[in-house]
Design a binder for these strands. Structure first.
Length: 420
RNA sequence: GUGGGUGUAGCUCAGUUGGCAGAGCGCUGGAUUGUGGUUCCAGUGGUCGAGGGUUCGAGCCCCUCCACCCACCCCA
């Protein structure tokens, strides 16, 4: 049997309805915040990500789907979208647009990791970028926007974790201080941490091993090493979040794996997700445009929601999905009835009703199907009804049945279905 | 890339000491030729993940491989 490749999956009904719901809510909230959609290609020149995300990151060194085009060019399936958006921003001179450039995107990303709960090789992100300002006011609005989308989708009980990772002026001093401190204590840490102390000291701070925590507590905090500008920026972001009554926890040990982050970084976690508990993450990336070759600076901040994880959390916390119901199940008994009723079905569908036209001539079977589809009404059209010019409209809830003229049908059904 | 767990019907899972491959749900038909749900009856369903070995005999024991899941690393 041919199966979907490792780390990819089919999203089937009824789950696909939840995906649509999430995307509809996200678009609604984006519109309210005056964000507009950008659609970038699913693959780019490899350079976009190698430079944008960072040559030494895990994503670039071991997780990208990179292939050679027939003309020899190196192309890569996008592992994230921020680099692509900035590439488009530069390419189309969006810096010439008035005010902040506020863009959102949604779609699949690709990383070749070992799959597990909440992690797939093709996964979906809903994200946005606000480009053109260094103001902490933008940081606060972007964080609020992230939370608003999660709320609108129906997620509750998530936690916002906040940190500042400094800038090129202050972060190197912190890193070397951390390295020094680890020299003395690394022998008291777990084997993973002893390795990380060499390869990526920042990662030690993120260790989840219980026994290591007392030692990790004693390590220097990035927040003590922020330069004056970064310190003020961070305080302002916190202030603005408090103004909006958005609760957050400062996590000086929140470390992010993409090189482009500067200053504000944040993560939103949820308890229903397993080990991969981040449902969204984001941060500021003031130097990214220059890294990608822009002559004009384009400071920005963005976020990305893991749609797979959001849907997962919704499915785990909410009661069973609501099956989309059929408004009217039409059961023509025989060829003549079928031919007469087909144009009627189209008319009703054009007017917004959800109509199922059964190719089934047996009434018992048709009603059985109507029931299984959760139909509100069934319409029975047999020889008797054809002769009378009035069809039998059956209320599937009560079992009551009454004759209705075809032209009255729409009003009769519409009056008792939720939408339309 | 590393570790652990699990593989039996479309789904969820039983399967005793190695002795005929099972249940529930689903699906199909019937009881009811034009009336669903509830009920009753019947039917449909299988490379027991794959290959090899031991044995008179393997879903069960042994070996190899594969897939999926969970976790590590890292991230959404």
């Amino acid at each position: 049997m041919i199966r979907s490749v490792k780390g990819t999956r089919d999203i089937l009904p009824p789950s696909s309805a939840i995906w649509n719901h999430v995307e509809e809510q996200a678009r609604r909230v984006f519109r309210a915040y005056n964000y507009q959609e950008i659609r970038t290609p699913i693959f780019e020149e490899t350079l976009v990500f190698a430079r944008g995300v960072g040559e030494d990151t895990d994503i670039v060194t071991k997780e990208m789907y990179t292939f050679q085009d027939r003309d020899g060019a190196s192309l890569t399936l996008r592992p994230e979208c921020t680099a692509s958006v900035i590439r488009a921003y530069i390419e189309h001179r969006l810096d010439q647009q008035p005010g902040l450039v506020k863009l959102y995107y949604m779609g699949p990303m690709f990383r070749r990791e070992r799959p597990q709960k909440g992690r797939y090789r093709q996964f979906y992100q809903i994200g946005a970028e606000a480009i053109g300002s260094e103001s902490p006011a933008v940081d606060a609005e972007v964080i609020e926007l992230t939370a608003e989308i999660l709320c609108a989708a129906g997620l509750a009980n998530f936690e916002l974790l906040l940190n500042s990772v400094g800038c090129p002026a202050c972060r190197p001093q912190f890193t070397s201080a951390l390295r020094d401190a680890l020299q003395d204590v690394s022998k008291r840490l777990c084997s993973d941490c002893r390795r990380r102390a060499q390869t990526n000291p920042l990662r030690v701070l993120d260790c989840k091993v219980e026994a290591d925590q007392p030692v990790i507590e004693t390590l220097p905090s990035i927040l003590d090493y922020l330069c004056e500008a970064c310190r003020i920026h961070f305080l302002k972001v916190q202030e603005y979040l408090r103004d909006r009554a958005i609760p957050f926890q400062i996590r000086p040990r929140l470390v992010r794996g993409l090189d482009y982050y500067r200053r504000t970084t944040f993560e939103i976690v949820h308890g229903a997700l397993g080990a991969q508990n981040a449902v969204a993450g984001g941060g500021r990336y003031d130097g990214l445009a220059e890294t990608l070759g822009s002559k004009v600076p384009a400071p920005g901040i963005g976020f990305s929601i893991g749609e797979d994880r959001l849907v997962l959390a919704l499915e785990e916390t909410q009661s069973g999905g609501h099956a989309p119901a059929v408004d009217l199940f039409i059961a023509p008994l025989g060829e003549a009835a079928f031919r007469q009723v087909a144009p009627l079905a189209r008319t009703l569908r054009r007017r917004g009703l959800v109509v199922e036209l059964a190719p089934e001539a047996r009434l018992k079977r048709a009603l059985e199907l109507a029931h299984k589809f959760g139909a509100r009404y069934a319409l029975i059209v047999g020889d008797e009804e054809l002769a009378a010019g009035r069809y039998a409209l059956r209320d599937m809830g009560s079992g009551q049945q009454r004759p209705v003229a075809p032209e009255e049908l729409y009003e009769s059904v519409k009056a008792n279905v939720p939408h339309a």
